[in-house]
């Protein structure tokens, strides 16, 4: 009985406490660097597209709002022919970022994406691709992957031997 009265009194006293609400458009919230906001596609240090179109982000997406088509250019690099995120479905869970093996897809601290027309929430590759390495500067997938591309032959990646001479029987 007393505890009821006491809790009512304590709640009542909250009337005189400081407000925690941030008055958003006038006051801006400070977002941490890992805040999961707008999704972007980043580039590697050579400014090549980091995305190799592996479809893992699409598979990880719990609302299935990512679709893409992988393709390959003349140099042997894979890239997405199209890359579409339907932000009207996106729940900003960040699974795509976790799934991405090349650090291409990243969530950045920007959430101001409101639109009056839902159709405008469908972002294509040109809307997603930024000229930056994002949170992981210096990472270049093709420098570690054992696939040859133009300018990086077999055996030229990090931790790789020169290609085997298959005509030799020397062990």
């Amino acid at each position: 009985m007393f505890s009821i009265v006491r809790s009512m009194w304590l709640v009542f006293l909250h009337m005189f406490k400081k407000r925690v609400t941030i008055q958003y458009p006038e006051q801006k919230a400070k977002l941490p660097a890992r805040w999961r906001g707008r999704i972007v596609l980043t580039r590697d240090p050579d400014m090549g597209e980091r995305c190799v179109g592996c479809y893992l982000c699409a598979a990880a997406c719990p609302v299935d709002c990512i679709s893409l088509q992988a393709t390959q250019d003349e140099s042997g690099r894979r890239y997405p022919a199209f890359f579409r995120i339907n932000f009207s479905r996106c729940i900003f869970c960040g699974y795509c970022e976790e799934a991405c093996p090349t650090y291409a897809i990243q969530l950045i601290p920007d959430f101001e994406m409101g639109e009056y027309n839902r159709q405008n929430l469908v972002y294509e590759k040109q809307d997603l691709l930024i000229d930056s390495q994002g949170k992981y500067p210096g990472y270049n997938y093709y420098k570690v992957a054992g696939m040859a591309i133009q300018g990086k032959e077999k055996g030229a990646a990090i931790n790789e031997e020169k290609p085997v001479d298959i005509h030799s029987l020397v062990p």
Partner: peptide
């Protein structure tokens, strides 16, 4: 069951 892109593959035509 892991089929992806269900809500996105046709979104460029019609977001609904």
């Amino acid at each position: 069951h892991r089929f992806s892109g269900r809500t996105s593959m046709h979104a460029h035509i019609q977001v609904s």
